[in-house]
Structure formats: C-alpha cells, structure tokens
C-alpha cells in the first residue's frame, strides 16, 4: 500500500545544489591538472639539454621504424606472462596450503615449503634469471630445458610463486577461526573445510594484492631479455645499437604501460568494491 513518491521542492533544491557542487569539483580538478602539466612541460622544454634529449629520446622517425619490431618482441613478453601467470597461481596456492597442514606426517613437506618461500623471496629476480638461465644448461642434464624462453619462465615462476604463496597464506589466515570451527562442527574434514569455506573467502580477499604482483610480473618479463630471446627490450636494444637513438626504449616503455595501466585501474576498482562491501557489512 505504498504511496507514490513525488519529490518535494526541498529535495529538488537539495539535488540541484549537489549537482552544482559536482560541477565546481570537476572544474577545480581540470584547472589544477592543466596548470601542473603546463608548468612541468615548460620546465622540461626550457632546460638547456632539451633539444638534444628531444632528438635522442623523442624521435618520431626512430619510433616509427623500430615500433613493428618492438611490438613483435612485446608479443613474446605477453606470451611469457600468459604462460607464467596461471602456473604461479596454482603453485602459489599449493605452497600456501601445504604451509597450513598441521598433521605431523606432513612435517617434511611443510618445512620444504617454508624453506622455499624464505629463500626465493630473498633472491633478486635478475639474479635468479641468470642462475636458472645459465646454470641449468651448464648442468647438461638429460631432458633439462635449454631454450631461453622456457628457462626465463621457470625463473619467473620460482620467484613469483614464493610471493604469491605468501599472499595466499595471509588471505587464508585472515579468515576468522570461527569459520573453521563452524565448518568442522558440521562434520567437514580439514580438506573440505579449506576447499569450501576457507579458500573461497581467502581468494576473494587477496585479489587486489595478487593483481599488484601480476602488474610487476608483466614488467619483469623484460628481464628474460638477459638470456637473449627477442622480446620487447631486446628488440629495442638492437635498434638502439644500430642508430644510437634511444627512442625504441620509449616505444617499449609505452607498450608496457599500455598493459599495466588498465590492470592497475582494475585493481583499484576491485579494492574500492571490497572496501564498500566491508562498509556495508
């Protein structure tokens, strides 16, 4: 039996004021952005070295000639990323779950998982790329991979899995113990409790930090260049060596930005949504 709601004059006036305030905010934001950009550009252009920098870093011709090769190389970066990411997710969750096993028979597994995360989080990615990329082939093991892309992917997976495992573990530990108690009291086993109750809640919470790690993985695919495959950075290096013009690096940078910025905005969006949900609850 609801009465139809006709907005009162008071509410209409209120909404008009809110709209006016919104317009003022947009104007203020635009003005201040324009001023900052203009000042920054003016400072750079007025600097004594600018003409030379423009020539070596912002050459349109060099950009156009190098771009197809750099783009082709960049596809290899994307490929490396697409292969490494799912492997890292699965292994990371696996390591986190192993670290959560309490039964004594699992002690060796648990100890190995702890040792692994401790060690690999401590090694700089660039070092790991060298160690795996040159160390594994030097062993001359039967069946060990020798292709630099595969070796690069292995090094990235080793390094990032240790980070991602810790992210998952913190997510798992953030689920309140009463949730486990409730699940166990319903008769669910440890495994079922993890699978149906704890992990789904943990995963939801760690999506923003995980995406953050993946943005940095996207960039670190460039480190595989050290092993020689013709990815974006390597292609850019080749062009730079030929022409002594650094613009190809800029081309590579732009491509990486084009990939990571949407990811960063998406992360923000998810984090904001999670915050709103917490606020509701």
């Amino acid at each position: 039996m609801s009465v139809d709601w006709i907005k009162s004059d008071r509410q209409l006036a209120r909404e008009a004021l809110l709209r006016a305030r919104g317009r003022r905010s947009v104007t203020a934001a635009t003005t201040s952005t324009v001023i900052v950009v203009v000042v920054a550009v003016a400072l750079i252009i007025a600097s004594p070295g600018w003409p030379r920098v423009r020539e070596t870093f912002f050459s349109w011709d060099a950009l156009v000639t190098s771009f197809p090769d750099v783009l082709r190389g960049f596809l290899l970066n994307v490929f490396i990323f697409m292969i490494a990411e799912p492997i890292i997710l699965v292994l990371g969750l696996g390591v986190a779950l192993v670290r959560g096993l309490r039964a004594p028979v699992f002690f060796p597994l648990r100890a190995a998982a702890t040792l692994y995360t401790d060690i690999f989080r401590g090694i700089p990615v660039i070092l790991l790329i060298y160690l795996v990329g040159f160390g594994v082939p030097a062993l001359q093991l039967q069946g060990a991979p020798s292709d630099p892309v595969t070796l690069g992917i292995i090094a990235l997976v080793l390094s990032y899995t240790s980070y991602v495992a810790e992210v998952f573990r913190s997510g798992i530990e953030s689920v309140h113990p009463s949730q486990r108690a409730a699940a166990r009291s319903l008769g669910l086993s440890h495994g079922q409790t993890m699978r149906y109750v704890v992990v789904p809640q943990a995963v939801r919470r760690v999506v923003p930090p995980l995406l953050n790690d993946f943005a940095s993985l996207q960039k670190d695919t460039a480190l595989v260049a050290l092993l020689g495959p013709l990815e974006a950075l390597r292609q850019a290096q080749i062009h730079v060596a030929k022409t002594f013009n650094y613009t190809p690096y800029l081309a590579a940078a732009l491509l990486f930005i084009a990939l990571t910025v949407p990811m960063a905005r998406f992360t923000d969006h998810l984090a904001a949504r999670a915050a709103r949900q917490r606020g509701d609850g």
Binding site: S178, Q179, A181, S185, L186, Q201, G281
Partner: peptide
C-alpha cells in the same frame, strides 16, 4: 561430529 549439531553465539554462517 556428523552426529552432533552445534550453534554458536555469533552466527558463523559462511558469508
């Protein structure tokens, strides 16, 4: 535990 049900003070439903 399959044969015993328990309900806690705070609801502990799975969110």
């Amino acid at each position: 535990r399959k044969r015993i049900g328990i309900v806690f003070q705070a609801y502990n439903l799975f969110p």
